[in-house]
Amino acid sequence: MKKSLLIAALLLACQFIGWSQAKKPTIMVVPADAFCERYGYVQKVNAMGETVSSPDYSRAMKENSDIRTLVAAMADFMAKNDFPIQSLEQELKRLQTEDAEMAMMTGRSGGEVEETPLERLRRNARADIILDLDYEIHRVGPQKQVSFNLQAIDAYSSKIISGNTGVSSAANVPMTSLLEECVLSFKDNFLSGLQHYFDDLFANGREISVTFLRYDNCPFYFDDDIVIDGEDYEFGEWVEEWFQDNTVEGRFTTGASSGNRLRFTQVRIPLYAQNRKGRDVAIDADDFVKPLVRELKKKLNVTVGSSPRGLGDVWITVGDK
């Protein structure tokens, strides 16, 4: 109780005095799968031996000027609110160059794609919030009308932060007018949804996921009993206790657990913590688990590594890095 009060007071102080700032989430607009399907911006991908179609963002961005208009209009208002939008186009270009470079270095030819483009994009672009954008142009005789559906998704928890659907005016005017009307229509509602999400973030902490993976080098399985501080614990149990002590109001959910894998979701972590020098700093998932990693290393004498997947997801590998 005392701890939570302290956190709350700390949060308040941070908000208003702002002596330390949380990391600003990065935001990216991505055309919805349904949109890509509808307009044929799809590519066949061989995933685990099966051919599945997946969105071809590159083509969508290159060939569809409407979506560029929408992204530009959204980038404009987000920038005005001090949240510059990450450019999907630039990110795609960067990925392409990276792939090319990688291919040259390893000499491997493509074809063994194991991730869908979205997964790859999410992994590489590390946007914290994905704006999933879908729109459809309806023709009503000589008039056009745009219906839109914009969902802001927390990239790690995959939760919808804010959903907005609606229609533009029906008119025979240039498409850009109707598209921009859509953006202006949902703008404030969307921002309000984001604000709500951020408020929750500041009040209840950031929601992250933590996954423990066991390497073969690890001398125990996660469901084995091990001795820590002279007491017998099941590894998972000990970790759970650690979470209970360190999450905001002890909030987290234990997901799938097995001898090789432990997953914790909806882990609410404080936005700020004290660093070794006693200063308040903003933390992300990786920072949050660092003390845990240190403690594990010290107490179990095994190699423990942590690899962040963006701000809200972290993999802890036990037995190797």
Partner: peptide, 8 residues
């Protein structure tokens, strides 16, 4: 009113 970016 609070700014959207306040706190970050």
């Amino acid at each position: 009113a609070r700014k959207l970016s306040s706190g970050f």
